[in-house]
Amino acid sequence: MTSPDTGPGDIAAAGLPEVVDTVAVARLYGAPLFQMPQDLYIPPDALEIFLEAFEGPLDLLLYLIRKQNFNILDIPLADVTRQYLSYVDQIRTTNLELASEYLLMAAMLIEIKSRMLLPPKKTEEGQEPEDPRAELVRRLLEYEQMKMAAAKLDQLPLLGRDFLRAQVYIEQSLKPRFPDVSVNELREAWLDILKRAKLTQHHKITREELSVREHMSMVLRTLQGRRFVEFQDLFEPTRGPQVLVVTFIAMLELSRERLIEVTQAEAFAPIYVRLAYQPA
């Protein structure tokens, strides 16, 4: 408080504002401001208030339906359309480009309502026509399902938002640190080795010495003490075609020297081989 004897000059010298009984409306750079400047210009869009934030026309329509507990399968289009248009009128005054998307949905609602007022016409097959609201209901249900799934995903813990990855640096000066090798690098190294092996592979051809006389003795030992042996039992297919050929030549040589007999009872009957009869 100042005394009655204090003059304006003393107040200015003390650095106090001349008006002390008026409440300051604002502060400018720390100094009190007791009245608004006469030349202050405030743009019309300096202050905007958004009551609800919607992500599109379907989001707004679903909000109006769920807020009033309407049955989504039986939407009262008259009430919903009226509330929808009132919201569109509000955003048209501030953002015409944003309102264009909502106007398209409003036109669709009005079209559906007009189709419901007309008498239904049966299809060419004589069936009842589909409810004009059916397509809109399908779109709303699909959008609500995706919105709920997105909300559940947003509730999952997120790296950088809900938790951070722990990073600990341990210096290992005594133990050498070798570079990490991935599975793909090992695979590429193995394929490179196989490629080089194909370029340097060797093919060795060997020749097996087969004796006709030796196989003649083998055939005679097989027939020794037996009345006869079926022709195919004298061959060993597992030893390869070379042994089969030499065994056949040995049999022909034994037959030429009359040491074995090859007999057949009738045409297409099995062929038998036995030792030739030697008179005493």
Rank of each mutant, 00 (worst) to 15 (best):
H202L: 13
A267W: 03
L254E: 04
E236H: 13
A265Y: 01
K198R: 12
Q224F: 09
Q242V: 07
D233Q: 14
E266Y: 07
Y272F: 11
I260L: 15
D233K: 14
S211Q: 09
G225I: 00
V219A: 15
P270K: 04
A265K: 10
V246I: 14
L210P: 08
E257Q: 15
E230D: 07
P237V: 03
A250R: 05
L210Y: 11
E208W: 08
S255V: 07
F228E: 09
K204H: 07
S255N: 11
M218N: 11
R239W: 11
A265D: 12
V243S: 10
I271K: 04
T206H: 10
L259A: 07
T263E: 09
T222C: 03
E214A: 12
T263P: 00
A250N: 04
Q232L: 09
T238C: 06
G225S: 06
I249C: 01
K198T: 06
S217E: 15
R221N: 15
E266N: 08
R239S: 13
I249E: 13
F268W: 06
R213H: 08
H215M: 13
S211D: 14
Q264H: 00
R213A: 13
T206W: 08
K198P: 00
A269E: 03
H215W: 11
L254A: 03
S217T: 15
F235D: 04
Y272I: 03
S211P: 05
P241Y: 05
Y272P: 01
A197E: 15
V229G: 01
E253S: 09
M216W: 04
T222M: 12
R226D: 00
M251A: 02
A267M: 09
L254I: 04
S255M: 10
H203D: 08
H202K: 13
K198V: 05
R258L: 06
